[in-house]
Design a protein around this nucleic acid. Structure first.
Lengths: 151, 151
DNA sequence: TTTTTTGCAAAGTCTTTGCATGGAT
DNA sequence: ATCCATGCAAAGACTTTGCAAAAAA
């Protein structure tokens, strides 16, 4: 799906939620679409948006991200470093994808397949807990850093 | 395992790491042991420790928690509310247990069984990622809140 | 006109750090 | 005497909020 149709889809999601896709919000969404492999913090997003719209304020970025999170356009996640990070929800994804956090280099890989289907069934049955979403992050050593260490 | 033997075990872990179990640290560890079903924030731990040792400072609690996290006596986790929470690592547990976060009442249940053994094997094989630990939280509705809503 | 959104600055919350004091080895 | 740990206050990092101005409906 190209950026244009992603954008109109998101515009519709905003309108359905009673919001407008202002130039500032559009610029923020574009940054998120263009960096969908990264896990940007609000500050990082702000810096990138500023290149397109130099007059935007940090508060607007925060407010836009809060709105996008409510609308489930983005998912908000924290990797225990005290910063919230934002990730575009993948097309058609019911649940948030998983993450592999490398303890050596700090890099983050994404795992898009949902590996938790069976686990969720167990949770729903055994705990009578109605699962809506999940956050799964593995901490470990990525293949790159394993190679570096062995050599 | 009773509190006393837990404490001597932790004392040993500290000594092995080159730290002393000072009265302030001991009071902090006791609060954690006594509240191992909760997921206390640093501030909450501070308030409880203050009842035992009124002269303790918040910074000492933060420094103690950082030390205990490094020694893997406790696990640090954030549930996307901007606060770090601390949880005693369960006796003999290789990995951090899972959490069920209720979106209605904010309550947190613990899931002690490790349901990720198979998933981790897939991750290790498919991504050549060496898994050391994990963070898994389900977002949803707990059984209590489901009952409330249907009635 | 009425409502929504924005930018800025200020305030708020959570956490870390500097430093002099105090305790332990 | 040296080293580590503590308490306090200050600073730092991240995020939210109040408000007047601007934009949109």
């Amino acid at each position: 799906m190209d950026t244009g149709s992603m954008l109109s889809k998101i515009r519709k999601q905003l309108h359905d939620g009673g919001f407008k896709l202002t130039p500032q919000r559009e610029a923020t969404v574009l940054v998120l679409l263009e960096n969908d492999k990264d896990h940007l913090s609000a500050e990082e997003i702000y810096m990138l948006v500023k290149q397109k719209s130099p007059d935007i304020g940090l508060a607007t970025v925060y407010r836009t991200l809060e709105m996008l999170t409510e609308l489930k356009v983005v998912d908000k996640i924290s990797f225990n470093d005290g910063v919230s990070r934002y990730d575009m929800r993948k097309e058609g994804a019911q649940h948030f994808h998983h993450h592999l956090l490398c303890l050596e280099c700090g890099g983050i890989e994404e795992v898009e397949e949902d590996l938790l289907v069976d686990v969720e069934k167990i949770i729903e049955k055994r705990f009578r807990f109605l699962v809506k979403d999940h956050r799964l992050t593995f901490h470990g050593v990525c293949s790159n850093c394993q190679n570096k260490k062995s050599s």
